[in-house]
Design a binder for these strands. Structure first.
Lengths: 177, 177
DNA sequence: TATTGTTATACTCTATAACTATA
DNA sequence: TATAGTTATAGAGTATAACAATA
């Protein structure tokens, strides 16, 4: 994304400044992972979100479209298209809920389960590839640290705690522009 | 994003499975950071990309729009709108290049420099907030590890090395669906 | 009256191509 | 002929609203 070899003199300074940034590193790693993950998931209808729906439908007690949409934070209108495609590909089925004739329960087909297994296997390869430069012990450390931050963030974020940030930020000097 | 409190019995199992995943943790942390970063940057015209252009224009020798677009991987058509807005907000100026009358050199105004300084300061607060749960030494470790992975990824990715992944993946069983 | 799922409409982003003025 | 910047057009993706069936 950076690495401009045309301006080596000044570019190095800028790149070093960027490289010292946590946000930059996080973004680079995330995008590297996601680019490869997307390539892996490209085959499943609906891409990453289709896969997300598939994994959300993996449970002993089937959920309705609305329940799954809410769980993974999707609009229920896109759910329709997504499930249309997934069902068309034979990865899951819509079954009328006997207790509520409005609702459709989503159930994985054997092909759907195989799909998930295949993707998971390939994602492991991608992860391995992204962490390529790190020896095993460092990978483990990185995993653990990320995990801790993620659990923290996942616990705080969902309710939207942007105000905290904004008030903390309000101590800044003037308006941004 | 997850945390469905409606189905505590099975949801726990699923969440634990997800929590063991590197990609999941990476995504959660990245989105947490970016959500807050976006909120911080929302004031600058063009959002994150506007800010990106601004930082790219921070250099002693001004660059043309095309040069900056190439450096940060932007299409030159969106550059026009972006620079329109940034110039309209008085954060940078277009100056005709005396050596090439086709090109426009982008130069930060004092207001633009103040903007960058303000945003950087606020991004530091965001970073601090995201890493909230980690003690200082662990933050340092996480930074270093991410940095190493990022530099590796940044060095490999740009040229697109998806084929490596796909060939590595080709050892998988059958097609995904 | 509220909710599930569907469909239709509008809006935003982005990518493509065409145009000008320079080189 | 190729390039810098601009403008216009088309497409994908997303959100909004309206609708039918059921609760």
């Amino acid at each position: 994304m950076t690495t401009s070899s045309q301006h080596p003199d000044t570019a190095l300074d800028r790149d070093d400044a960027l490289r010292a940034d946590f946000g930059w590193a996080l973004g680079v790693v995330f995008r590297a992972y996601r680019r490869q993950a997307d390539a892996v998931i490209a085959d499943v209808p609906g891409g990453p979100r289709g896969y997300h729906v598939l994994t959300a439908a993996t449970r002993p007690d089937p959920l309705s479209q609305a329940a799954i949409a809410q769980e993974i934070g999707l609009d229920r209108t896109v759910m329709t298209y997504l499930v249309d495609d997934l069902e068309g590909a034979g990865l899951l089925t819509r079954r009328p809920d006997p207790r509520d004739r409005r609702a459709r329960l989503l159930e994985l087909t054997p092909a759907g389960e195989r799909c998930i297994a295949a993707v998971e296997q390939r994602l492991a390869v991608v992860e391995d590839h992204v962490l390529h430069g790190l020896p095993d012990e460092d990978r483990y450390a990185l995993r653990c640290l990320l995990q801790r931050v993620a659990q923290q963030a996942d616990a705080i974020e969902p309710a939207g705690d942007r105000c905290q940030v904004m008030t903390a930020i309000a101590n800044g000097t003037e308006s941004i522009r």
